[in-house]
Amino acid sequence: MPLLDVRDLSVVFQRKGTAPVKAVDGVSFTVEPGQTVGLVGESGCGKSVTSLAIMGLLPRRGNKVTGEVMFEETDLLTLRPQELRDRRGRDIGMIFQDPLSSLNPVIPLGVQVAEVLERHQGRTRQAALKQARELLDAVGIPDPARRLKEFPHQLSGGMRQRALIAIALACKPRLLIADEPTTALDVTIQAQILTLLKELVDDSGTALVMITHDLGVVAGLCDTVNVLYAGKVVERAGRHQLFREPRHPYTDGLLQSVPRLDVDRGGRLHQIRGSVSDNIPWPEGCAFAPRCDRVIDDCIGDTVPLEPTRAGALRCTNPVPREVPV
């Protein structure tokens, strides 16, 4: 049984006087225990809203969340706020993109780490602080005893992200959601954090949902990858499958448009024409059709369903042909 089963999740933002915006449109995916699942897409594709909806972190007002988010036996969307608070931080941890704005600037780091342990495991402040020191040590923060008393602004970006990881993993959650955890960091620091995440996930058996726009990060980390476009999953496959043989023209285009370090530099980069449509609501049919090179008549009109394939799933009427195996 999957650890997390997201079924037909939709988020609609509504404001008086404006047309409703469908940010997430029927997203479904599952996460098995210990698995690392990637959600990839460009800005505005709904990947962050998906994660916020799973955690119940979207504001109560002005939006409508439908569908089911089954965490083991419970549907997280039906829980009352109090019940949800008991689970966040204990069963599900979360790491956000910008570590500086996710940490409270006027509370010492140690207290922020200890807080989770006090809240969920009923530790005393003293016991929690002691454990916090071990946690900071485990995520590779040098001199943790001193760091406990320091404030977030006294730490570098990489250290702050490590501290956030320590907080997220403090109660040994079964699921960790990481929303662009390395985007604000330099590449050498990114490599440190990704290696750390990988080690921690492997050691503790925590399942990880990795939300990122960086295909390179996905390639090294995720077991299964979901590619999102305009609020919908357009392709799902194991990472080897996805990178070797992308079927959706969008995935294919994305992979070709990234300059790669390990390939001889050719003249021009492949480019996807146009940009994500601002015409919300998106038209019926495939949202990628206006930018797609493989567009046919069937792409416009009816909604294209997400069909299961041998590798995973695909939402396309005219996919990139599979290479004939030699």
């Binding site: 440190q192 990704l194 390179g216 390639a219 090294g220 990472r239």
Partner: peptide, 17 residues
């Protein structure tokens, strides 16, 4: 440290952290 969008390369790479 630069991630490469190819799992085959990523798995075999040596990293200088």
């Amino acid at each position: 440290a630069v991630p490469i969008p190819d799992p085959r390369v990523e798995d075999r790479r040596e990293r200088i952290l």
